[in-house]
Design a protein around this nucleic acid. Structure first.
Length: 877
RNA sequence: GCUGAUGUAGCUCAGCCGGUUAGAGUGCCUGCCUCACAUGCAGGAAGUCGGGGGUUCGAGUCCCUCCAUCAGCACCA
């Protein structure tokens, strides 16, 4: 049926073929199916600003593992993919590109010209992102792919804006907002990054009107004094109480400004007197509101001094600072300059300092929506995995301010509001209105601004499914199950999806938020453009295969913790894949035409053992997956496949496979095959390509692995497993001894058994295992003690190894002494424990009994070892 | 300043509803090209579980405190 498997695992030769096959056979398509329970994940849409990085690879792998395992577990599993237009980030990049290619800036372009370029960009980068996702193996239903600026999504955005507006949540108002003078737009509080910056504290003398007094004021931003409209002091600050109500003269400007009392002022800080610039500082703005102060805006939208600044007009903020400090100095107003480090808000996109600015913007009132979002989590409707992230969520909701949603940009959803030239009325509508809803005038113009990217992201689980229409998809797949994302966007996105879903559909959009850590570089640094320490996942995939990359990303880290990206670990994962590849080749190499069904196979001890181990692996992996412990699940499968299936069972199976009992051989193959099949299923969500490829080589397989059912427990008889464990322990001891004596593997050996009959029986029945596992080709019951021996002691049985020409008594002595030393310390520990009245009376009886048993066993072995040592010492003499 | 995380073998990390001799991968050392695999096999060495205190019969595991590293939030006139 198929060609033979290559000798070495070469993922490059089959990964893309396998992926195409999945697509051809519609393996990822999810349909509305009342017979099944839906399981839905909506992909956090990657920004079309560029390509996917390792962080995406981790995030996508986690989702794919969940989706693939649920699909196999019988759910109608939908993973809905898409991309995000990323308003500000993309606009910045596109303008950059246009400038580099054509030398034109935004001022030289019309909105239409720009948008045309933007859509071209979207096609190019969007396609690359899909290519990357397919290389990774993402099992998305591509037919349902969405873009945040699709018609379907646009409709949801307009609908929610209009509804929020009609319900009074959205309003337009003049507020102090965060303004990025470089991007030329307002940004929300969440989009401001605070960075520690070195700055100066300037102490300036403000002369009082009508007296010779001087008020000393410390500031980090002297240039904003042009907009000062008051000086605030603490109402109980005895240094200044006599000045409250009087006026000072603003240096350089000459304006009279009042001294006011406000308890916001910190008496300890600076001079205890605060210049108040309501137009350029959030706290000053609050003070200004409280005291009804005039607001003087001194900057234009590029943060250059405007006409309010008199002689300083036209200077940008940094030039203005320099010039004003100079002038203050020459005119004798500057008292001192002190170095002072402080946090300054920066634009999260262009990393330039943001400027607080009074501006007319659209806002979403957050009080009620935040309450809904918080209550839902409190009621347990949505849980974080791991739980601790609920604190970030709550912390943000507790301190939330109204959300500024308008952006002075072109790339995005244009605000559906029209202004009338003849009256004050604002028309907010789903469709473009012909006339003003207030006065009927046809002279209306649309708001030029677009919405914050996150406004559409907030609707993602709804909009992708066709909301506000009540589509079948929405009814069946909403609410979704899991939202997988990094902790850095809990408040950008998780919070906002929560209240959007709760508000519009009265149901939280997902029951679990799965938080993945950051992927750091090999040195543990955050991946950043400035360090250029990122790696394109495609490069890793081309070299090692997507399976290795995926496995490396999820294995060995706990949920929510950061992961390091290391090529060494990718190699380990690739080696594991190679191991599986070769184990499969081994099994297939012995394949026969017809094998009996597992139920008809006469199972031997090793079969029962591996079926039992396999059942435990199935149980534990399933359990880890249910708890989102993907790293633990991955490690557990690897342990099973490598250490149990390959290292023990395959080795033991050689006894039967190379024997001449054909029936037994077929039975053995059936077990090998069944266990391998189950393991491939368990591993498939983690390493989808290699498992599907191997599956294709297995006999009589019409179904794809991706669509196969999750393994069920085999529940074979567990008879003899205790003896099996004893046998394996004996093998370990023999290997250890042979290694220490440096006996080469081709040098066979003999074992004589003494001890409990039942154990001896089992050992004799399975003596071939000693041959394949530890090169001991003769196993017999002890008749007569030979001369030159080494003795291995286990509870219940002694293995006597006649090693005449091989034994090195010095080494044997050392081995026994080491063992005795270990036993003595153990005995002491255990005796101490049992001598402790507290332990005996308070610890659980079961535990005390176990300790007692342990002690007697230890003592017995200690005694026997001591005897052996005495004999060895005699031999040496 | 507040909150959270992290600190366990050379390195990367598991473990922690308290209870055998603290695990894995990798690296290192030793011996093996044993008929699936040298991307491998077998064996071995290696850790006062960040410091201190407490609770307990018993503490990497719970509590307190300190130190170090990281992250988020707030504020800094």
């Amino acid at each position: 049926m198929k060609k033979e498997m290559e000798k070495t695992y070469k993922p490059q030769e089959f990964e893309s073929r396998i992926y195409s096959m999945w697509l051809e056979k519609h393996a990822f398509d999810a349909e509305v199916n009342p017979e099944k329970t839906p399981y839905t994940i909506v992909l956090p849409p990657p920004n079309i600003t560029g390509s996917l990085h390792e962080g995406h690879a981790l995030n996508h792998t986690m989702q794919d593992i969940l989706i693939r395992s649920k699909r196999m577990q019988g759910y109608e599993a939908l993973w809905l993919p898409g991309t995000d237009h990323a308003s500000i980030a993309t606009e910045v990049k596109i303008l950059d590109k246009i400038f580099q290619e054509e030398g034109r800036t935004k001022d030289d372009l019309t909105r239409e010209e720009f948008l045309e370029k933007a859509w071209e960009w979207k096609e190019t980068y969007g396609d690359h992102i899909f290519y990357q996702m397919q290389k990774l193996g993402n099992s998305c239903d591509w037919r349902r792919m969405r873009f945040t600026m699709d018609d379907v999504c646009n409709r949801a955005v307009t609908e929610s804006f209009v509804r929020y507006y009609e319900e009074g949540y959205i309003y337009r108002g003049e507020r102090l907002i965060n303004w990025c003078p470089v991007c030329g737009t307002a940004i929300s509080d969440a989009e401001v990054d605070h960075e520690e910056k070195q700055g100066n504290f300037y102490t300036i003398r403000y002369p009082m009107k009508d007296s010779d007094d001087v008020l000393r004021i410390a500031t980090t931003r002297p240039e904003t004094m042009l907009g000062d409209t008051a000086i605030a002091v603490h109402p109980e600050d005895s240094r200044y109480t006599h000045l409250i109500g009087k006026f000072a003269i603003l240096p350089l400007v000459g304006r009279e400004i009042p001294i006011i009392a406000d308890s916001y002022v910190d008496r300890e800080l600076g001079t205890g007197a605060l210049k108040v610039t309501p137009a350029h500082d959030p706290n000053d703005y609050e003070i200004g509101m409280r005291h009804d102060l005039p607001i003087i805006n001194i900057f234009d939208e590029r943060a250059q001094i405007n006409e309010e600044g008199g002689v300083y007009q036209g200077l940008d903020r940094y030039e203005a600072r320099k010039k004003i400090v100079e002038d203050l100095k020459t005119q004798g107003f500057l008292e001192e300059i002190k170095q002072h480090d402080h946090n300054v808000g920066h634009c999260y996109r262009c990393h330039r300092e943001i400027e607080p600015r009074i501006s007319l913007q659209w806002f979403v009132a957050m009080d009620e929506l935040a309450k809904k979002a918080k209550e839902s989590v409190e009621k347990g409707e949505m849980k974080f995995a791991p739980e601790r992230f609920v604190k970030i969520y709550n912390n943000w909701l507790d301190n939330i301010r109204d959300w500024n949603i308008s952006r002075q940009l072109w790339w995005g959803h244009r605000i559906p509001a029209w202004y009338c030239e003849e009256c004050d009325h604002i028309t907010v509508a789903r469709e473009e209105p012909l006339k003003c809803a207030g006065c009927g005038s046809e002279k209306i113009t649309r708001d030029p601004d677009v919405l914050d990217t996150w406004f559409s992201s907030a609707l993602w689980p709804l909009s992708t499914m066709g909301w506000p229409e009540e589509t079948e998809t929405l009814k069946y797949f909403y609410p979704t199950d899991v939202l997988a994302t990094g902790y850095d966007i809990i408040f950008f996105w998780v919070v906002r999806m929560m209240f959007s879903g709760l508000h519009f559909l009265e149901e939280r959009p997902f029951h679990t938020t799965l938080i993945n850590g950051l992927v750091r570089d090999a040195q543990g640094r955050k991946i950043s453009k400035s360090l250029n320490n990122g790696t394109d996942p495609i490069e890793v995939i081309d070299e090692y295969g997507a399976d290795a990359l995926r496995f490396m990303l999820v294995s060995g880290t706990a949920l929510g913790n950061d992961t390091r990206f290391s090529i060494d670990r990718v190699e380990s994962a690739r080696n594991f894949a190679n191991k599986l590849w070769n184990a499969s080749r081994f099994v297939l190499g012995y394949m026969k035409e017809e094998l009996p069904p597992l139920g008809e196979v006469e199972l031997d001890l090793s079969d029962r053992w591996i079926l039992h181990r396999s059942d435990r692996a199935i149980e534990e992996v399933t359990d880890f997956l249910d708890k989102y412990e993907l790293g633990m699940a991955a490690d557990r499968i690897q342990e099973f496949l490598w250490n149990e299936y390959c290292d023990w069972y395959i080795e033991m199976s050689k006894v039967t496979l190379t024997g001449d009992d054909e029936e037994a051989g077929k039975g053995k193959l059936r077990v090998l095959l069944s266990v391998l099949e189950d393991a491939l299923k368990l591993l498939h969500p983690f390493m989808p390509f290699i498992t599907e490829e191997i599956w294709g080589y297995l006999p009589k397989r019409e179904e794809l692995l991706v669509r196969s059912p999750w393994p069920a427990l085999r529940e074979a008889s567990q008879e003899g497993l205790a003896e099996m464990n004893k046998l394996m322990e004996a093998v370990g001891k023999i290997r250890n001894l042979r290694a220490e004596m440096k006996i080469p593997h081709h040098k066979k050996g003999r074992i004589l058994l003494e001890g409990e009959d039942s154990l001896i029986e089992v050992f004799l029945e399975n003596k071939e295992y000693f041959r394949v596992l530890s090169s001991m080709d003769q196993v017999d019951r002890l008749q007569e003690m030979p001369d030159d021996t080494s003795v291995i002691l286990l509870d219940g049985i002694r293995l006597i190894l006649p090693l005449s020409d091989l034994i090195d008594y010095e080494k044997e002595k050392a081995r026994l002494e080491k063992e005795i030393e270990r036993l003595i310390s153990e005995v002491k520990r255990t005796e101490g424990k049992l001598a402790n009245q507290g332990f005996v009376t308070k610890a659980p009886a079961e535990l005390v009994r176990k300790e007692e048993e342990k002690l007697s066993g230890l003592q017995e072995r200690l005694e026997q070892n001591s005897q052996l040592l005495a004999e060895v010492k005699k031999k040496i003499r």
